[in-house]
């Protein structure tokens, strides 16, 4: 019941760039309490769908709603304020900030100390910084990154940066978590740890969507999987259903072994 009311839904989402249709009238329901997988070949439109859901792109047609409230016309920042958070396929960390500080940005939306606190040593600003640091350190520890907290991103291997990117997304206790290829660049053991973390995150109120090419990860943690190709859904169902779907086998799973 909770799951149905707190879903993230899209109806008839169509997006095109200069006449090229990237999303072709998609209807989706991402339920709370489930981990939904979104798979498909490169260029299928997965990232574009995320961009529409978070407001980075404005689809030409269609409605997007969360928990029954329309999100249409809201800026990405406003959607972030509603608890809709994402990670990026291409790691988007600031090289000027330490790992810890990068992750702290993930909780920034929950804090509101004014500008005076930014320049003067006022108690509210200090408390805010301490609180943000504590939360960020917690998320980094969960992902096994505590040692790297004070390094600059420049000094870390790509796999760790990917995990930092994920830490930034989960640290703010989001209501909707959209992860774009979270396991790209991770080695096997890192991927296994990530799977554990994501399973632990699953809770009654959280909508989690994972775009991923790693089939083992998707098949083992996702409750429901959407398969996308050329901006359309080809199939939708549980891991077993999707695995048996002849269309999916043809266009995706059977095409090669990636």
């Amino acid at each position: 019941m909770d799951a149905a009311t707190n879903a993230l839904t899209g109806q008839g989402i169509s997006l095109s760039f200069g006449g090229i249709k990237v999303l072709k009238g998609l209807d989706v329901t991402f339920r709370a309490g489930e981990i939904t997988g979104l798979i498909g070949p490169n260029g299928a439109g997965k990232t574009s769908l995320f961009n529409c859901l978070t407001g980075a792109y404005s689809p030409q047609e269609g409605q997007i709603a969360y928990a029954g409230q329309s999100l249409d016309g809201l800026s990405p920042a406003a959607r972030a304020g509603k608890g809709i958070v994402r990670s990026f396929q291409h790691v988007a960390l600031s090289l000027d900030l330490t790992v810890l500080e990068n992750v702290m940005i993930g909780v920034a939306r929950n804090h509101h100390a004014g500008w005076l606190n930014a320049f003067l040593p006022l108690p509210r600003g200090r408390a805010e910084r301490a609180e943000m640091e504590r939360a960020a350190m917690g998320a980094l520890t969960d992902l096994g990154l505590a040692d790297a907290a004070h390094s600059l991103p420049d000094a870390l291997p790509p796999g760790m940066l990917r995990l930092v990117e994920i830490a930034r997304a989960i640290v703010g206790k989001p209501d909707v978590l959209l992860l774009d290829e979270p396991a790209a660049g991770l080695n096997n053991s890192e991927t296994r740890d990530l799977m554990q973390t994501l399973r632990k995150l699953r809770s009654g109120g959280l909508v989690m969507v994972v775009v991923e090419h790693d089939m083992d990860l998707v098949m083992s943690i996702c409750d429901r999987i959407y398969v996308m190709n050329f901006g359309e859904f080809v199939a939708c169902g549980t891991a077993d259903e999707v695995r048996r779907d002849p269309d999916v086998i043809r266009i995706y799973l059977g095409s090669d072994d990636d």
Binding site: A80, A92, L93, L97, I105, R109, G125, E128, G172
Partner: peptide, 28 residues
């Protein structure tokens, strides 16, 4: 020096290099 450590400072620095990412975390 304080600004560099403040919430606003962090958001500004992220916005400089990745405006879309900063946007997605609430900093227009």
């Amino acid at each position: 020096a304080r600004l560099r450590r403040s919430r606003q400072g962090l958001a500004l620095l992220l916005s400089k290099s990745h405006p879309a990412a900063a946007d997605a975390f609430g900093a227009r």
